[in-house]
Every structure is written in structure tokens, then in C-alpha cells.
Design a protein around this nucleic acid. Structure first.
Lengths: 148, 148
DNA sequence: TAATAATTGCAAATTAGTTGCATCTATATT
DNA sequence: AATATAGATGCAACTAATTTGCAATTATTA
């Protein structure tokens, strides 16, 4: 195994430990897949295609995605496609999406001032103590679709 | 027809005019339904149940929801349920959601400072001129689910 | 009022996601 | 190191959500 893959294996195990989940082969492979693709949302279909090469079932992919989401490791993002897409929750690189309502093209931007807003929200809503992640998405027509 | 329903009929027609969509019976009934239920996200199922009493088909409900979304009149909200939920886009009452990852309970909060963030985003992403709506959602475990 | 382009309903198809259950495996315990 | 056990997985079948094709209808425009 290459140096960087070795490193990702370690990070994958740490992720699972932190989440309090058993470090099974399927989950480790899943986490490494996430770490290998940090830039774009991953669909269940893509993950299944890749992980089935290692004998991991579609149902298992769903179940792992669900488990990691509930632990705040993953977030499910809505980019207008029918199927679920998932991204790793990365506190440092807090990026968000601008999505075209027509062609569903996704662009990223950074710098939503979430902390102040989360504080404000938690003061309004009493039955939450903390937030595991947030989404801030902008929707509109891209220049190409606007001129049709 | 009562005074207030008459008024909603007018508002529905105005909505459709503004969107540049034909004012069909189905669309007018759909818009009035939205105006009658401004507080909570409406599911396709709920809308279909109501509108089918007027002979409007489920498929038509899907198509109208899609058409209005693309025009920025409606927004599709993701509150963790399997089916689509829709809300009217209301610039004045800019509310957002806190959703429990476990039990999917939705609470509302207001006061996300979207304008500054949208400006910032449009400076970063060049192929959009304007934004028709935005979403800002917070995800976490509610107090009840956190103690399980 | 006629022409026409868009909208609708219906039936059928597709796709995404879920469930039950038997088997297996990671971890805690001895 | 072997064992017990709770939890995870794979498989097959299922359910629910959404989409498509097409013929019939309807809102607008000339």
C-alpha cells in the first residue's frame, strides 16, 4: 500500500472510532472512498459501483451512509438530483453550493457565516443543544439556462 | 366564494402571471392550496390528496411543483423525509429549518443573514447573475434523541 | 373564432430506497 | 488465544416515489 493510502486507512479508522462504530471492512472501504473524493458530492450509485468491486452490497452502502450521517460525519446534500448525494463534513473547508434550477450544475463557494447564525437559531429553538452540520444552498438559473 | 378566497384567487393568478405560466385550473388550485398553507412544508402526497378532489392528477401535481420551482416561486425543501416537500418562497418571512437527524422533527428559526452571503457567493461564482432562493438548514440530534 | 402550443390525465414503466432474515464478523470477555 | 455476543452484512423481495409516452383537452394569440 502506498504511503498516502496507508495514511487514509488510519484516518478512516479514526473517523469510525470517533463515531463509535465498529471498524468493519465495508465501513473502512467506504470512508477511504470518501477521503479519496473530497471535492464533490458522491452519489449512492457511484459509491456502490466502486465498492461492489470489493464485494460490498448496495444495501450496505445505504446503511453505512445513514449511520455516518446520524453521527455527523457525513452530510446528505440536496443538489436537485433524485438520488441522495453525500459529502464528508469538514469543519475547516466549509463550502456550499450554488445550483442551477434547470441544468442542476453545481458550483461551490465558501464563507457562509454559520457560527453566528447557529447561535441565533439555538437561542430560538430550545430542544437542540448542538448542531452537527449545516447546509447553505443557493438556487437560481445559471447564465446559460437564463437565456433560453 | 368568501372575501378571502376571492383574494387568494387573485394572488394565485398574479403568481402565475409573474412566472409566465398559463393560468390553468390545476395551477390556480395548486397556488391557492399553497396560499392556504403558508406555515409548513407541503408534501406531494398532501397536495395530491387535496387536489384530487378537484380531479387533478398526481402527475400534474408533480409537474406543477416542478414548473413553479424552476420559476423561483416554490422551493423544494429537504427535511430528511423520502418524498419531496415544497414551500412557497416568501422574501419577507425568510425562515429556515432545524431538523433532527434521528426523528426528522422540524423546527423553524428566522434571521439568516443571506444578503451579504449571496453577494459574496456571486462574486466567487461567475456564471450566475441572480439567486431565486436559498436554503439554510441546521442538522443535529434533538434533546430527546441525543439521550438514547 | 380558429389555430397552435402548452397542459393534462391515464396507464405503464422506472428508479430509489427499505425490510426480513440467515449468516458472518469485530470486539469484549474469559 | 478461544469464545460469546451484539451488531453488521448480503441477498432477495418489496414498497414507495417519481417519470415517461401519448392521446385528448385547454389557455392564449392572432
Amino acid at each position: 500500500m502506498s504511503r498516502s493510502q496507508e495514511e487514509k486507512l488510519q484516518r478512516a479508522k479514526t473517523m469510525l472510532d470517533k463515531a463509535g462504530l465498529k471498524k468493519t471492512n465495508a465501513r473502512i472501504a467506504f470512508c477511504i472512498l470518501l477521503l479519496n473524493n473530497p471535492t464533490k458530492p458522491l452519489s449512492i450509485e457511484f459509491m456502490t459501483n466502486t465498492l461492489s468491486l470489493r464485494g460490498i452490497d448496495r444495501v450496505t452502502v445505504y446503511r453505512i451512509a445513514d449511520a455516518l450521517s446520524k453521527k455527523g460525519i457525513l452530510k446528505r446534500v440536496d443538489v436537485g438530483s433524485r438520488e441522495a448525494q453525500y459529502e464528508i463534513v469538514d469543519q475547516k473547508e466549509d463550502h456550499h453550493h450554488i445550483i442551477c434550477l434547470e441544468c442542476k450544475t453545481v458550483s461551490d463557494f465558501t464563507g457562509c457565516e454559520s457560527e453566528a447564525i447557529i447561535d441565533k437559531a439555538l437561542r430560538q429553538v430550545k430542544n437542540f443543544k448542538s448542531i452537527s452540520h449545516h447546509s447553505f444552498d443557493l438556487w437560481g438559473l445559471c447564465n446559460t439556462c437564463a437565456h433560453k
